[in-house]
Amino acid sequence: MSLAPALRSGPVRWERTRLLLSTPTFMVGLAILLFWVGCATVGQTLVDPLADDMMNSLLPPSAEHWFGTDQLGRDMFARVIAGSRDILIVAPLATVLGIVCGTLLGLIMGFFPGLVDDLLSRLIEAVLALPLLILALVALTALGASNGTVIVAIGLAFTPQVARVVRSAVMSERHLDYVAAARLRGETAVYIMVVEILPNILPPITVELTVRLGYAIFTVATLSFLGVGLQPPSPDWGLAISENYALIGGGYWWTVLFDALAIGSLVVSINLIAEGLNGALE
């Protein structure tokens, strides 16, 4: 007679990790992301994206210049490899800023229904009526473009969206009996929010983090393309496309194509990872 049987199943975390590692979409996404992270960290020591050579400008792809050269004769391959760096610094920082602020705001809104929630909800709804890009565009026009302001602008623009996700997660936890039990123990609101509820809503926050990271890259690239994001002489992809876009009418397709593909591969990789995580955390 077994009075203390084996526990129902092993640790959740390991199970999830194994599930993730066996998801092809997740693994492909991870591989692409790691490639670009590698380029961002060591790329500039291997290639020089700024070395110009006016004699060899606008050369089509060849054995010597795999991706051709741009107007200043800079090697496009070197620029594509090195172009991953700034965006991979700015986008994650902006995401973290947005997640932290949004989680704080969402916790407060979800836990204190009534006046606090109503007021903040109106504010958030008003901000969300504006597309992210327009918000960031206006903010950067006001603040001036630099890596720091791009981080702040995107982070703040993310805050209401994250807050809304966290708020609804908190709302569905708030009615569970373990929260009532904590109240019966006389726990403070801060304790209940941070110690009781927060650990249970980490899965949706994690998913939100990856989804937001994808959007951050999307937005940073777009802002750079519009000339209000990262500034020259950064080899940033969006910026490079913006600089060379006028040339494609003349048939110099290689000056934009590889940058475009690079951005595409990076955002897709992030979303494959987000999708994999979403599936594993469900």
Binding site: A221, I248, V268
Partner: peptide, 25 residues
Amino acid sequence: TITGLSATVIPEFVSGIILILLFGI
């Protein structure tokens, strides 16, 4: 699902440029 997902996250200027290169030029 994967096509939809990937298409959704590619910035419009990226897909726009690829489309212009392909169909326009």
